[in-house]
Design a protein around this nucleic acid. Structure first.
Lengths: 193, 193
DNA sequence: GTCTATAACGAGATAGAC
DNA sequence: GTCTATCTCGTTATAGAC
């Protein structure tokens, strides 16, 4: 973790970058080893060297995605104090994803959940747990500070925030219309105040 | 359309029933001709007689689903006058789907949108158009009657209703927890009043 | 309308050379 | 770490008999 790792992304990391984007666009069942290998410029066999099975590749995809998401949440925490502004920044993450014409990786995998290997299922659930817990904390703190007034329990409110944003991405992508996510965000914020 | 069609579902109709359920659970890319044929007790070749291509099967799936949805909306319209009660009944449709541990057919296909043939894409968009238009009409009428007070435009509010319910299904299915959809419904109703 | 048989292809995965 | 070659299986789809 010093200076010397000068953005020389190794093959495995590059493969994850490509696979991540492809899965966010087409879904896990819509992406093959051949797709990733071709774009990376290596053979399927070489890709199997880095990820022995598709389940392994998929699990690595989710854990990396979750780690990055956690980092983004930590960054929000240390940069912003106001609960509504935190929620707004949180929605901004989703907005950036949909602007790239992608779906949330774990939202996509949630749709395909019943076809996923167990290791991937667990990792997907964990992603949503982390989001839910973080949002609930933000809402609780905001409630105490008086900057936010959730209608029901903070837990339910946190869940509805996630649901609304994930659903908005799903529908926004159909017509490549990010404004639908913005409308969802505005309504969430209005309703929490 | 008389009395004589005594629920003798023909093979094509039975195939659609099976395929519909399988796609709602596994996704379109997670279902094969073999899956449907096996459950129906015929061969893949016989299924191809009824639906020449998978795209044809998929399109038939969506149009039938949409027709049934329209009928459900019409039934709500003739049974209920109150706008909030209509929205509640609308959410009830989604609740029934998630109780069967299924995803909305078109919500599922929205996730897989980029891998679908054009005919299916158009049919999926049409489904959401119909829902959006109906909801917007309900909200407008409710606004005039004073039974509903949407924050922004009725169009945006209608879109957020759909997004929230679709997203809640997506997440609720992960843990087979329909209460998440109930929380979403309650919050939507609270926020519109 | 359903069958057997098969074509044609793509999938995930492995063996072994370099 | 990447390659060629191959395996095995599942996929959509078609031909032609019954």
């Amino acid at each position: 973790m010093r200076v010397e790792d000068g953005a020389v992304a190794d093959t495995a990391e590059k493969a994850l970058d490509i696979a991540e984007r492809l899965v966010q666009v087409r879904g896990f069942n819509g992406v093959s080893y051949a797709d990733v290998a071709a774009e990376l410029g290596i053979t399927k066999a070489a890709l199997h060297y880095h990820f022995a099975s598709k389940a392994e590749l998929g699990t690595a995809l989710i854990t990396r995605y979750t780690t990055r998401f956690e980092a983004a949440l930590a960054e929000i925490d240390q940069r912003i104090n106001d609960a509504p502004a935190k929620i707004s920044a949180y929605a901004g993450i989703y907005l950036n994803v949909v602007r790239q014409q992608r779906m949330c990786l774990c939202g996509m995998l949630a749709a395909e959940y019943q076809t996923l290997p167990t290791s991937m299922r667990d990792a997907v659930v964990r992603f949503f747990d982390i989001n839910e817990t973080w949002l609930e904390g933000v809402l609780k703190a905001g409630e105490q500070a008086g900057t936010v007034r959730p209608r029901g329990s903070t837990r339910d409110a946190a869940r509805v925030v996630i649901s609304t944003l994930e659903g908005a991405m799903l529908v926004a992508r159909l017509r490549d219309d990010p404004t639908r996510l913005e409308a969802a965000k505005d309504q969430l914020l209005a309703e929490l105040s």
